[in-house]
Design a binder for these strands. Structure first.
Lengths: 101, 101
DNA sequence: TTTTCATTTGAATAATTGTTCATATGAGAT
DNA sequence: ATCTCATATGAACAATTATTCAAATGAAAA
């Protein structure tokens, strides 16, 4: 029962991990990520699919991009967003699994 | 490229999953959970360990308990909290792994 | 170049949320 | 019953955050 802090992950690491989970902890963002798990998509397509304004979707995509969870490429006039990482699928999968019980 | 919604998890399910991740998406709560991953502990011990007030810890434990992530038992005057589920370890583990790169 | 379409950005607003402080509850000890 | 000790609770406050609206940027078409 001695020093528990030594056995815990570093505080900074935990902070970053919390920041990561914060990304998944919002209805809009997790819907966006779920959609992108099926296939890459433009901002407008996402907005139509989820029934939200382009602006709202764009703001959230900005955060997700900042968190390196999605990446974007330009295709003519539109921006196509896709998952940055297979880790994203794994994490959402774990969450879904835990909830479905 | 047809109906993507049909391939996505149900909206309610995604909502619940977001709620789950919200629990991990806070510095204080993830620290509490990390500590409880090492060993079960009283509210006061957690407060001392993390350098926060008992009240703040108690409030967060209430949320974690509501989310079925921790459970409590009484031991004399104190309440001993522990992880409710091994799933919690798995999920935090995934998050830590993703961050450490 | 001007126009149009898709996206981004910034400011404002509304809503949620974490912490603090003071008080209440609850259990064991005196 | 009273007195501690440990925890829980509620209200107030501060801070963060998601959405909306309006305007700006950027790229392709006319």
């Amino acid at each position: 029962m001695q020093n528990i802090r030594d056995q815990m992950p570093d505080a900074c690491l935990l902070y970053d991990t919390a920041e990561l989970f914060k990304m998944f902890g919002d209805s809009t963002r997790i819907q966006i990520l779920s959609a992108l798990m099926i296939c890459e998509m433009s901002v407008g397509d996402l907005a139509d699919l989820l029934g939200m304004t382009q602006s709202a979707v764009s703001h959230q995509l900005r955060l997700l991009k900042g968190g390196k969870l999605v990446e974007a490429r330009r295709q003519g006039k539109q921006m196509i967003y896709s998952l940055a990482d297979d880790h994203v699928k794994t994490i959402i999968g774990q969450g879904l699994e835990h909830v479905q019980e």
